[in-house]
Amino acid sequence: MPNLIKKFAPPSLKGISMTLGLSCALFSASSHALTVYTAGPGAMAKQLAAGYEQQTSVKVDVFQATTGKVMARLEAEQANPRADVLISASWDTAVDLQKKDWLLAYESPNAAQVPARFKTPYYVAQGISALGIVWNTKSGTPKPAEWSDLTKPAFQNKVTMPDPALSGASLDLVLGLENARKAETWKLFTDLKANGMVISGPNAQALTPVLQGAKAAVFGAVDYVAYSGIARGESIEVIFPESGTAIAPRPMMILKSSQQQAEAKAFIDYVLSPEGQAIVAASWLMPARTDVQGKRPDFSMLKILPEVTPDSAERNDVLSRFNAIFR
Rank of each mutant, 00 (worst) to 15 (best):
W135I: 04
V238E: 02
E53F: 04
Y106W: 09
D96C: 04
A214F: 01
A194C: 08
M301G: 00
V62D: 12
F219N: 06
S28H: 09
Q47T: 06
P297I: 02
A9H: 08
A49Y: 00
A206T: 05
G201Y: 08
T208N: 08
F219L: 13
T245S: 13
E107P: 07
L131A: 03
G51V: 04
P249V: 14
M197C: 07
S31D: 13
A231H: 08
I279T: 15
G168H: 07
V238T: 03
N110F: 00
A33C: 05
Y227R: 00
A246I: 06
T160F: 01
Y227Q: 02
P11N: 06
T208A: 08
M301E: 11
P202M: 04
Q126L: 15
D317W: 09
I239E: 04
Q113V: 02
K158L: 15
I279N: 07
M18I: 02
G196S: 10
V318F: 11
K193S: 09
A94K: 01
L131G: 02
K295V: 12
R181G: 05
T56L: 10
V318Q: 10
M253D: 00
L166E: 14
I304M: 12
A282I: 05
Q126E: 13
D163Q: 05
Y122D: 03
E275M: 02
Q205F: 12
M197T: 15
Q55N: 07
L302P: 06
L305T: 08
A111C: 08
A25N: 15
R327A: 11
F219K: 07
I87R: 01
L173R: 00
A125E: 01
L13F: 11
T309K: 15
S283N: 12
S139A: 13
Y270M: 11
A324T: 06
Q47P: 10
F155T: 10
A165N: 12
L166S: 05
V318T: 14
G21D: 11
A76N: 13
P209A: 01
V36W: 04
A89K: 02
A183D: 15
K303L: 11
A169E: 02
P164E: 05
P287R: 08
G40M: 05
S23I: 05
A43N: 12
K193P: 01
F189T: 07
K158Y: 03
P202G: 03
I304K: 04
G140S: 03
A65G: 11
L166G: 00
D61G: 05
P153A: 02
F27L: 14
R181D: 12
D172K: 12
S200D: 13
L20M: 14
V218P: 04
N195S: 08
A288F: 05
V238A: 06
A246V: 09
A130M: 10
S273Y: 02
L177T: 04
L74G: 08
E237P: 00
V218I: 10
Q126F: 09
G294M: 06
A43C: 07
R327P: 00
V174L: 15
G196N: 07
I254Y: 14
A29F: 12
